[in-house]
């Protein structure tokens, strides 16, 4: 029979601490399963040979989060009317405490976001990661690219300075040259025959509600698919997960042509 010593005071205290820390987590887990969800996300397996290029997707996400946070702060000071917009932009940049930093991050973050979108897309292309079973995620990605560019287009008008105004006049007119939908689209964007206060509030609403809402929904779907399907390993890697390991005789070269390998190469 084992002799059970009474636990020391320190031990008791440690156990009480642990229970106190775990209690809210257990409470949450019991009622939502969220803790298990996060644990699954964090401790899921990914290929052992992932490459630095595969960080570009989450870097794009980070840039988007920067845009969302700085955008919310800008919206507290920005006034979307032709009369006040320019002055409110001057006020944010030159007077509000750290306003220049918030606006600067939003303005330049937009370019960084667009660059990262293209780099991430390039990496997916290079890896052939748009192939079965990830076709749908590629399509979601292309839609994200389009929405990202639209976000840039609508945001450009908001400072209501000469650059903004004339780029948008021409941009909207160009949309109008499209067949069928073009004139209707131009009319919708302007909110009338001329660029006016209506155009500005329309662009503002598109820029800070509708398009970001779409982007957030699509990012959620995108990440769901990334987690469900897993990320590819670099196609050139020796470890390449999913690669078919077939012992086949060295291909016999016949002149310039080479016989096709069995089973259509690697995945």
């Amino acid at each position: 029979m084992a002799i059970r010593r009474a636990p020391s005071k320190a031990q008791v205290r440690r156990e009480q601490m642990l229970a106190a820390v775990n209690y809210p987590l257990d409470w949450l887990e019991e009622r939502s399963g969220l803790v298990g969800g996060v644990r699954y996300f964090l401790f899921r397996k990914v290929p052992s040979d992932t490459n630095w290029m595969q960080t570009l997707g989450s870097a794009t996400l980070t840039a988007f989060i920067v845009q969302a946070l700085t955008g919310v702060i800008l919206a507290m000071y920005y006034k979307p009317s032709p009369h006040d917009a320019y002055a409110s932009i001057q006020n944010i940049t030159d007077h509000v405490t750290m306003g220049w930093l918030v606006r600067g991050m939003h303005k330049w973050g937009a370019s960084v976001f667009i660059i990262l979108l293209f780099l991430h897309m390039g990496r997916v292309f290079l890896f052939g990661a748009y192939k079965y079973p990830r076709e749908l995620n590629w399509i979601v990605g292309v839609l994200l690219l389009v929405l990202g560019l639209t976000e840039g287009f609508t945001g450009y008008l908001l400072p209501w300075d000469q650059t903004a105004y004339w780029a948008s006049v021409v941009g909207i007119n160009l949309n109008g040259t499209a067949p069928f939908l073009g004139p209707w689209l131009a009319q919708f964007l302007r909110g009338g025959q001329e660029i006016s206060g209506d155009t500005l509030s329309r662009f503002y609403s598109l820029h800070m509600l509708i398009i970001p809402g779409g982007i957030i929904a699509l990012i959620t779907l995108h990440l769901y698919l990334v987690i469900r399907l897993g990320v590819t390993s670099p196609p050139w890697s020796k470890e390449a997960a999913g690669r078919e390991v077939v012992e086949e005789p060295a291909p016999v070269r016949t002149g310039l042509t080479r016989p096709a390998p069995h089973g259509g190469g690697r995945d």
Partner: peptide
Amino acid sequence: RYKKDVKERGKSF
């Protein structure tokens, strides 16, 4: 095969 490889030889995220 990919799923199996990742499960057996993958690393934790």
